[in-house]
Amino acid sequence: MKLMIVDDSVIIRKAIQKYSAKYNLELVGMVGDGKSALELFEKTLPDIVTLDITMPEMDGLTALDKMLEIKSDAIIIVISAQSDKSTALSALEKGATDFIGKPFNEEKLDKVLQKVLEDV
């Protein structure tokens, strides 16, 4: 399965890459803004996307809508510091598969990745 990592923090991108390495996913790319994410998504059609919300160019929730228009069965895991209930609910209502609030550690990402991979 193909994985794409979207976050405007290079540290967070590297952390997700490190934490997800054990799952034998094909990493198609890591980008730091919503516009680049959408371009890479159209080009590579990943199966799983980790998606930040607060980013330059285009925010993650707008990118989420557009990604699901392109590939409705994409698994999109929103990872955001905006961890209030309404933001999480908004992401899930738009079609995100799961929501992780920042800060997050390896265990937290593991739980979500294991769940989505079991459900595939």
Binding site: D8, S9, V10, I11, I12, T54, M55, P56, S80, A81, Q82, S83, D84, K85, S86, T87, G101, K102, P103
Partner: peptide, 27 residues
């Protein structure tokens, strides 16, 4: 630089749990 930005973003973003979704945060 990136780590510093990520921390201020996270601490401020987490404040929305208490102050609501209209506590808007810049990049």
């Amino acid at each position: 630089v990136d780590m510093a930005g990520e921390i201020v973003n996270t601490l401020s973003g987490n404040a929305r749990e208490f102050l609501g979704a209209k506590f808007n945060i810049s990049i």
